[in-house]
């Protein structure tokens, strides 16, 4: 069972101040902390779990600048066997379609039974790359996968729908599956673990290595472009209670009491 897992390095904005940069088309990233995209981390864990169960290989692939290598190192530390880095100035500024096109060109040349990707990325959040990649490769796909079993040439998956409902589907392999958070419990990766794979070779490829011209990838090869980013209005709907912990707790209890909820 040869599995390819697509990963992306994204900024973690949990408690960051977001500033739109001067181009208006991106955010200031200099002071941000980056990590593997949360959804991709679950996809990576799922790939390694499958390999541990069924044997075979896990190849991890990313598209990004030289800093993106750190997510490949992380994937190697978790248990990936090979890492491919699509790194070319021509890839910059691509939309989901352009990214999928580059990934498809690289993956087409590799042996694979299954391709896993995160259901979406925490930065752009297009939710497009996995299914686009599947169609470009000419293979079936299922998105938002919350559980996965492989039986010979068939994958049986659960897809997350709305309102607590899931659907169980069967797909013929090879296929692309996009992984939803919560499908597994991603293992912890220590700094020492990442250090151990520091010298492992990474297969770096440019657009020309994939038989793609600069016009076919990145911003030039995209079907959409960002005109402008802005911050949504910070308007608060209600009252922020002010005072010490004891005071705000007292105020809130009084509000509940006035509604008759403490009777």
């Amino acid at each position: 069972m040869d599995i390819i897992v697509c990963v992306k390095r994204v900024p973690d904005l949990a408690e960051a101040d977001i500033v739109i940069d001067r181009s208006q088309r991106d955010i200031e990233k200099d002071d941000l902390v980056f990590d593997i995209n949360e959804w991709d981390n679950y996809a990576l864990e799922e790939a390694v779990l499958l390999k541990e169960k069924l044997g075979g290989t896990v190849t991890t692939i990313t598209l990004g600048d030289e800093d993106a290598e750190e997510v490949l190192r992380r994937a190697l530390a978790v248990g990936a066997d090979n890492a491919v880095h699509l790194d070319d100035a021509a890839f910059a500024g691509g939309d989901a379609y352009a990214t999928a096109k580059a990934l498809a060109a690289a993956i087409r040349e590799m042996p694979y039974d299954l391709v896993l990707a995160g259901a979406q990325a925490g930065d752009d959040g297009y939710g497009q790359v996995g299914a686009t990649l599947a169609e470009l490769l000419g293979i079936p796909h299922a998105t938002l996968v919350t559980s996965l079993e492989v039986d010979g040439k068939i994958a049986r998956v659960r897809r997350e729908l709305e309102a607590g409902l899931e659907e169980v589907m069967e797909l013929g392999l090879p296929a692309v599956l996009t992984i939803q958070t919560g499908i597994n419990e991603p293992r912890y990766v220590s700094i020492a673990g990442i250090r151990r794979v520091a010298r492992r070779e990474i297969d770096v490829r440019k657009a020309s290595d994939l038989g793609l011209s600069a016009a076919e990838v990145g911003a030039a090869g995209s079907k959409t472009e960002i005109e402008k980013l802005s911050l949504p209005p910070a308007a608060q709907k209600g009252d922020i209670l002010e005072g010490s912990t004891a005071v705000v707790a007292e105020k809130l209890a009084a509000i509940f009491a006035s509604k008759g909820w403490l009777g």
Binding site: Y97, V129, A134, H141, T143, R159
Partner: peptide, 24 residues
């Protein structure tokens, strides 16, 4: 819709049609 159905359908449909797609 940008729903579990739409996410499963729109991207591959757009590739087949060579359509421009914006999501969510």
């Amino acid at each position: 819709g940008h729903t579990a159905c739409g996410l499963d359908l729109a991207p591959s449909l757009a590739v087949q049609l060579d359509a421009a797609l914006v999501t969510d």
